[in-house]
């Protein structure tokens, strides 16, 4: 197995996630795209852990999974709060901070 096949898979998934963040305006779908990005980063970390024969990448990957779980919890809490106040979760409608 080449190193590059995993790294390129991570790069492709990262770009798909970035496209999702740019193109979507539903807040829940943006959070899903962010999950794809975080998973591509995990693939990269584990590839380099295998390449260098170290376990540090595994620890980082586990920490990323834990932080992503916390991020989704808080993110969806925020989305629920926005929905309760505005009756919509479309990002385009949240324009109070526009000058």
């Amino acid at each position: 197995m080449f190193v590059n096949q995993f790294l390129l898979l991570g790069a492709i998934l990262f770009c798909i996630g970035v496209y999702g963040v740019v193109a979507r305006k539903n807040a829940v779908l943006m959070l899903m795209s962010i999950e794809i990005i975080l998973n591509s980063v995990n693939i990269n970390l584990l590839t380099f852990a295998l390449r260098n024969g170290s376990t540090d990448g595994h620890v980082f990957a586990l920490y990323i999974i834990a932080v992503a779980a916390a991020e989704v919890g808080v993110g969806l809490g925020l989305v629920l709060l926005v929905y309760r106040n505005k009756k919509t979760i479309s990002i385009d409608d949240l324009s109070e901070m526009r000058g």
Partner: peptide, 11 residues
Amino acid sequence: AQYILLAAEFV
């Protein structure tokens, strides 16, 4: 599944 291919069973 890719993590398993990368020998990272716990992750």
